[in-house]
């Protein structure tokens, strides 16, 4: 067993945690903004998949990685707007609309991918993001190579956390988001447009989900496969609960999940051969369910989550 632990706690392991946490951090922050405004976005799984596809395709056709990222972000915003159209403007059930958006986006992703690339025996790939060591910082022992020798998108995720906290807690717009998620009537009577604020928050959330998708197909796998997201979106929704709708805690939850995921990957590779590898694959999901069971009793969701706002309703 000692050998296993030695293998686990090394630079490569820390770097793997950061890498696994990155798309989850983007996705979790995106879902958090949406939910803080009172809109559950179950479309996240499909949106991430579609964004992974569009980003990959744009890069594959143009050769530009950043163009791919931009396309993925725009796709995410568009799908966010679609979800907001149904749930905010029309006030439809957030649960069912989210499932609808996921089914629609994943169907569209499969369809367009097959249309553009046809059926190939070896899936097409791109030259994805390369690690970008940050001078000086990457020379710090252990932490340096693990955290500061990463993809540009990883640094973006690291910066996104304090930025999200600043926006949510320190800006008037962030206050409006929290207010429409707690008591939309209060926001409305203070002259804040509930509909507009919710749209903006869900669209911003979509943009972040787009970054999550882009990371998967353009930095982690450098290809688009149908299983490229495989439940990460659902996990992000659980992480928002686990992180109590707070940017810092949510990011922390993403790191914790990434730790469990990285651990199971190491354990799979570490010759614990008599245990089927699927048992390890299950582990993060079971961990998430248990974590939710532990946390949910005291978790307090935004009061107006799932509640549509119609002004003249009596």
């Amino acid at each position: 067993m000692n050998a296993v632990f030695e293998q686990i706690f090394q630079v490569g392991f820390l770097a793997a945690i950061i890498r696994i946490a990155t798309p989850l951090a983007f996705a979790t922050l995106g879902e958090m903004f949406s939910e803080r405004a009172g809109v559950l976005n179950l479309g996240i799984e499909g949106i991430m998949l579609l964004c992974a596809m569009t980003g990959f395709t744009a890069t594959s056709l143009s050769g530009s990685l950043w163009l791919g990222v931009l396309v993925a972000v725009l796709t995410g915003m568009l799908m966010g707007a679609l979800h907001a159209l149904f749930t905010v403007a029309l006030g439809l059930s957030q649960h069912v609309c989210g499932i609808g958006v996921t089914l629609f986006s994943s169907g569209l992703a499969y369809f367009l991918y097959r249309l553009i690339f046809g059926q190939q025996s070896v899936p097409p790939s791109i030259k994805g993001f390369q690690t970008l060591p940050i001078p000086v910082l990457s020379d710090i022992p252990v932490l340096g190579p693990a955290v500061f020798n990463q993809f540009a998108l990883v640094y973006m995720a690291i910066l996104a956390i304090p930025l999200a906290a600043f926006v949510l807690y320190r800006t008037p717009w962030g206050l409006s988001v929290r207010m429409v998620g707690e008591n939309p009537r209060a926001a409305d009577s203070a002259g804040v447009s509930v509909i507009a604020t919710r749209f903006q928050a869900v669209i911003l959330g979509g943009a972040l989900m787009g970054l999550a998708g882009a990371f998967l197909s353009m930095a982690q796998f450098n290809a688009f496969t149908f299983g490229v997201v495989s439940g990460r979106g659902w996990v992000a929704i659980a992480l928002v609960v686990f992180g109590r709708w707070d940017p810092w805690r949510s990011a922390g939850a993403a790191l914790l999940f990434a730790f469990v995921d990285a651990l199971q990957l190491r354990m799979q590779a570490s010759g614990l051969g008599h245990i089927p590898y699927e048992a390890f694959l299950m582990l993060p999901f079971i961990f998430t369910i248990v974590a939710m069971a532990v946390m949910s009793r005291n978790a307090v969701a935004p009061s107006a989550l799932l509640k549509p706002f119609r002004r003249e309703e009596r």
């Binding site: 179950l42 996990v235 929704i237 609960v241 699927e278 299950m282 079971i286």
Partner: peptide
């Protein structure tokens, strides 16, 4: 435990799938 049933039933799909595999 007041766990959201949407999320837990979704996550459970993955668990069952891996168990089947």
């Amino acid at each position: 435990f007041k766990v959201d049933d949407v999320v837990s039933s979704l996550l459970l799909n993955s668990v069952i799938y891996y168990a089947l595999m």
